[in-house]
Design a protein around this nucleic acid. Structure first.
Lengths: 190, 190, 190, 190
DNA sequence: CATGAATGAGAGTTCATTCAT
DNA sequence: TATGAATGAACTCTCATTCAT
C-alpha cells in the first residue's frame, strides 16, 4: 500500500518528464499528478535529483527484461541485433526522449558514475551477446567487446531518440534499416 | 568595441559551462567572469537560455574550420576519418562535456530545430566527404549518405565525450583506435 | 490559522499602502511587516497587483457595514446624507489616500470591471437610499438614481481624499459643510 | 529645432500614456516612439517622473484655452456650465483617462502640491466664472466659490473619464444631461 | 505513514540613468 | 546637442525542502 505511493510518484514523474524536461518539472507538479502530498515525495526520495536515477534504472530494467525474453530462443548474432534494434525502437517510442533526459539530468548533477552504474547490467548483457558471437565466429575480433558494446548501445540509443523526437514516423523503417546495416557491417564478419 | 562585450560574455560562458554545466551557472557568474555589468548580458542575449545556441554554433564552427583546414590536402577517405576523429578528440578535450551540455540545454528548451540548424553545416561537410568517398569507390553504397553522416557524427561525439568525462587519459588511444576500426568497418569497403 | 497569515498580509499591506502608495511598496516590505516569509505571500496572492482588489473590497465592505449600522434608525434622506458624509470622512481619515491608490492601482492594471464589481454593493446601497428618498418625495425626480448615486459617491470620495491629503485638519469642518450643502442642493427638493 | 525633440518626446509620451499606464511605460518606449536617442530624454527631463507634470500642464492648458475661447461671448452662467461640460467631454475623449493617469502618476510620487500648482490656473478660471455668476445673482451664495469650483471640476472630470473609459458611447448624452442637471441644481438659483 | 502550509535563499530580468564619443 | 552602449541596484517570483500536526 505504501509502496503504491512511491509507484504513483515514479509514474507521474515519468509521464511529466517525457512531456517537459527535468528542469521544467516541479516537485509540486509531480505530487499533484501523483495525487499525493508534497511531503510524501520526501518520504521516498532524498531529493528531487534522487528521482532521476530511479526512473532511469526502471527504464533500463524494462528494456533489459524485454530483450532477454525475446532473445532467449535466438541463435544468430545477426538476428539478435535485429531484435535489439526493434525492441529499442519500441521502448523508446513509448518514452520519447526520456532516457536522454535522464542522461542530461544526471550529467547536470555531475553524477555520471551513477549513470554508469545504472547502465552496467545492460552493457554486460550486450557484451555477453557479442562475446558469444565472437565464439561462434560471427562477430569480428577486430573490436574489443567492451568498446563494441558501448558503441552499439550509444548508436542505437542515439538513433532511436533522434528518430522519435522527429514527429515524422514514416522515416522510422528507413532509419532502422540504415542502423541495422551500419551496425552489422561494423560488428559482423562479411 | 561593443562586439567585444558580447565576445567577452560568450567566452566567459564557455569557460564556466565547461566546468559546471548550464543549470549550475548563474548569469551573475558569467558577467562577473566577463567583467561586464549584469544588464549588459541582456543587451546581447534575450535570456539565459538564448546563450546556449550561440555557444554551440561557435563550437561547431571552430570544429568545422579546423577540420576543413586539416583535410584540404588529404585524398583517401580512410585518412580523412582518422583526421576527423583526431581533431574531434582534441576539440572535445578543450571543451569537456560542453557539447552534451549544449545538447541537453537545447533538448530541455524544446528547440530541436534550432539545434539542427546549428549542426547542419557540419553534417553537410561530413556528407560531402562520404559522397566523395562513394564516388571514389572507397565508401560503401549500402548506407545512405545522410544516415551514415548522422551516425558517424553521433558516434564520434558520444565517444569523445564519454572518454573525456572519464578522467583516465590513458584509455584515450585505445578508445580512439576502437572507434576508428568500428567506423571504417561500417563505412568503407573491405 | 492559515487564514491568519492571509489576514496578516492584508493588514500589513493596508498599513504600508496608506503610507507609501502601491508602486513604492515591495513585497518584501509587506511580508516583513506581516511577519511571514516571502513565499507565503504568493501562497495567497497570485502576484503583487492581485493584492489591491482584495484590499479595496475589504475597505468598501467596512465602509458599507458601518454606514448600514448608523443608518438603520434614520428616516430622513437629509440626515442620511449627513451621516454618510461623516462616516466617509472618518473611514477615509484612517486610510489616507488608500482608496485613490487602489483606484490608480486598478486603473493602471486595466481591471476596470474588477473595480466596478468591487464597488457594486456600495453603489446599490446608495441607490436604495436615493430611491427611498424619491418615494418619500424628499429626493428630486430630475436625476436618475443610478447617475445620482455615482456622482454622490465620486464627490464624497474625492472630497474626503483631497481634504485628508492636505495635512490641514482645520479645514475639515468647513469642507464637510460645503459638501453637504452642495449635495443636498443637487439631490433634495428645496 | 532642438525644441522639436522635446515636443516629439512629449507627444510620444502622451500617446503611450493613454494606451498604457504610467508604470507600464519605459523611457525606452518613449524615445523609440519619439525617434530620439535614450540619452536625449535626459536633456529635456530631469527624470522620468518629471515628465508627468509637463504633460498634465499641457493638457490643462489646452482645456483652459479652448474654454476661454468658447466662453468669450457667453453671458449666462447656466450656458457657461453647459459649454464647460461639453468641451470637457470633448477634450477628455481625445485623451481617454490621460488626466487621471497623470493624477495617479503624481499621487504615486508624492508630488501632490505639484499637481495643485498645475491645476491652479484652471481652478482660478472656474472660480472667476462662479464669482461673476454670484454677482449676477445667478449662482447661489450658499457655497464658497473655492469649494464650489473644486467640486465642480472634480465632478466633471470624474464623470467624463468614467464615461469615456466605458466603451459605450451611447450613454454619453444621457450622462452629460444628468451631470448638467446635478451641477446646476447644486450651484444655481432655482 | 501522510499531509500541505510555510519557508527563504536565490535567480533571472528590468529599466532609469549615465557618460564617453 | 545628440547618441546609445553600458551600468547595476532593485525587485518580483520560484520552488526544493521542512516540520508540526
Amino acid at each position: 500500500m505504501s509502496q503504491t505511493k512511491k509507484t504513483q510518484i515514479i509514474s507521474a514523474a515519468k509521464q511529466l518528464l517525457a512531456e517537459h524536461g527535468i528542469e521544467n518539472i516541479k516537485v509540486n507538479d509531480i505530487v499533484k499528478q501523483a495525487g499525493v502530498a508534497q511531503g510524501t515525495f520526501y518520504l521516498y526520495f532524498r531529493s528531487k535529483s534522487a528521482l532521476i536515477p530511479e526512473i532511469a534504472a526502471e527504464l533500463i530494467g524494462e528494456l533489459l527484461q524485454i530483450q532477454r525474453e525475446k532473445l532467449s530462443q535466438v541463435v544468430r548474432t545477426s538476428d539478435k541485433i535485429d531484435i535489439i534494434i526493434d525492441t529499442s525502437f519500441e521502448v523508446s517510442r513509448s518514452y520519447r526522449g526520456l532516457l536522454s533526459l535522464c542522461y542530461s539530468g544526471l550529467a547536470i548533477n555531475d553524477e555520471l558514475s551513477e549513470w554508469e552504474r545504472i547502465y552496467e547490467p545492460y552493457k554486460t548483457f550486450i557484451e555477453e551477446i557479442l562475446e558469444a558471437g565472437k565464439a561462434e565466429g560471427e562477430v569480428t575480433q577486430q573490436i574489443a567487446t567492451s568498446s563494441a558494446a558501448q558503441m552499439m548501445i550509444s548508436l542505437i540509443e542515439e538513433t532511436t531518440e533522434r528518430v522519435h523526437l522527429h514527429e515524422d514516423e514514416t522515416e522510422v523503417p528507413h532509419e532502422k534499416e540504415q542502423l541495422r546495416t551500419f551496425l552489422k557491417r561494423a560488428l559482423l564478419h562479411v
